[in-house]
Amino acid sequence: MKKILLVGVLFPLFSYAQWNVNLFGGFSNYIGDLQSKTYTTQQSNGSFGAGLQYDLNGHISLLSNLTYGRISAADGYSPKADLRARNLNFESVIDEWNLLAEYNFFDLQEHRLTPYVFAGLAVFHFNPYAYDTTGKKVYLRQLSTEGEGLAQYPGRKPYALTQLSIPFGGGIKFRISDRVVLAYEIGFRKTFTDYLDDVSSTYVDRAILLAARGPEAVEMAYRGNELKGGAGYPPAGTVRGNPKAKDWYYMSGLRVTIALNSSNGMSGMSMHRHHKGVIDCPKKVY
């Protein structure tokens, strides 16, 4: 009897279940010590991705995507004079793999348009870098710009370049045809690091950094002296960043979802609608 009940519960899910391909294109940005705005297109970069989506029913889907993005920011764009005087900048590629659950407020078999939300878990890789005064690309983690890994600063451990984040967001979908859905979405990623931009806490002693990592580390840790009239390297302990606020990154753009054919050659969308006796576009558009 229990088995019959279980089949009765699960059958509607698997009879509807449909595989889809997702394609994403848009822009990426971050929130941190060099970019404090919650959401902005200033200093944004391109991002794109692809993945698979499994529709359990008309409202709930499971997704897995591989996403590429790039984040960057520079103090020179800041409205605050003290940050412009610091003159730091960075760039980083973000490679992400995620697992998401998504909820559509309206069934797209009955409505042409629906808002939706999603959340899940992601693994991402980053590696911040900047260009020195000669134009040479310099990866920042290896320089220990805030004393990470130095014996004189035992509380500052080197940060991992591959970490977890919590993606969540939402958007709005528009069904173009039985097999194609177009969406615009915004997805934020809560991270557990303050080093997406290689900036977190305070300046370390210049002499210690110079002896341990060389002149390039000192040059990239503070760049105010590159400006006309800029000050020299700050005293040890001077605030460089805010360690209480972890960094975030986000991606926003268009997503195209394409339904794959089922084993009998008919998409899950079409099958569902034919079972309901409907073969043309739904009348509801909201």
Rank of each mutant, 00 (worst) to 15 (best):
K3H: 05
I4L: 07
G8R: 11
V9L: 14
L13M: 12
F14L: 15
F14W: 15
N20A: 08
F24Y: 13
F24W: 09
F24D: 13
G26E: 10
G26F: 09
G26N: 10
F27M: 11
I31W: 02
D33F: 01
D33W: 02
Q35L: 00
S36G: 04
K37N: 12
K37C: 00
T40V: 03
T41C: 00
S44E: 02
S44N: 09
N45V: 00
F48P: 05
F48A: 09
A50W: 12
L52E: 02
Q53I: 00
Y54G: 07
Y54Q: 07
Y54D: 09
D55H: 11
L56W: 10
G58A: 02
H59V: 01
H59Y: 04
I60M: 00
S61H: 01
L63W: 01
N65F: 03
L66M: 08
G69Y: 02
G69N: 03
G76Q: 13
A81Y: 13
D82N: 13
L83M: 12
R86A: 12
R86M: 11
R86T: 07
N87F: 10
N87I: 12
L88N: 14
F90D: 05
I94H: 08
D95E: 13
E96K: 10
L100P: 02
E102F: 00
E102K: 11
Y103P: 01
Y103I: 03
F106E: 05
D107S: 11
H111Q: 13
R112T: 08
T114F: 00
T114Y: 00
F118I: 00
G120I: 02
A122L: 01
V123N: 12
H125D: 13
P128C: 11
Y129T: 10
Y129Q: 10
G135T: 07
V138F: 08
L140G: 03
Q142T: 06
L143T: 04
E148M: 05
E148G: 04
G149W: 12
P154W: 07
G155K: 01
G155F: 04
L164F: 15
S165I: 09
F168T: 02
G170C: 08
G170V: 06
G171I: 01
K173H: 12
F174G: 08
R175F: 02
I176Y: 06
V181W: 14
V181S: 13
Y184D: 06
E185G: 09
F188N: 10
F188W: 15
F188T: 13
F188G: 10
T191G: 11
D194G: 15
S200T: 10
S200A: 14
V204L: 09
D205Y: 11
D205I: 08
R206L: 07
L209F: 09
A211M: 04
E216L: 03
E219K: 09
E219C: 05
M220A: 11
Y222I: 05
N225V: 03
E226T: 09
P235D: 14
T238L: 01
T238S: 07
R240W: 08
R240M: 03
A245S: 15
K246M: 13
K246D: 15
W248Y: 12
G253P: 01
R255S: 05
R255I: 05
T257S: 15
A259C: 14
G268W: 04
G268K: 03
H274L: 15
H275C: 01
H275T: 09
G277W: 08
V278P: 01
D280F: 04
D280K: 10
P282W: 06
Y286Q: 01
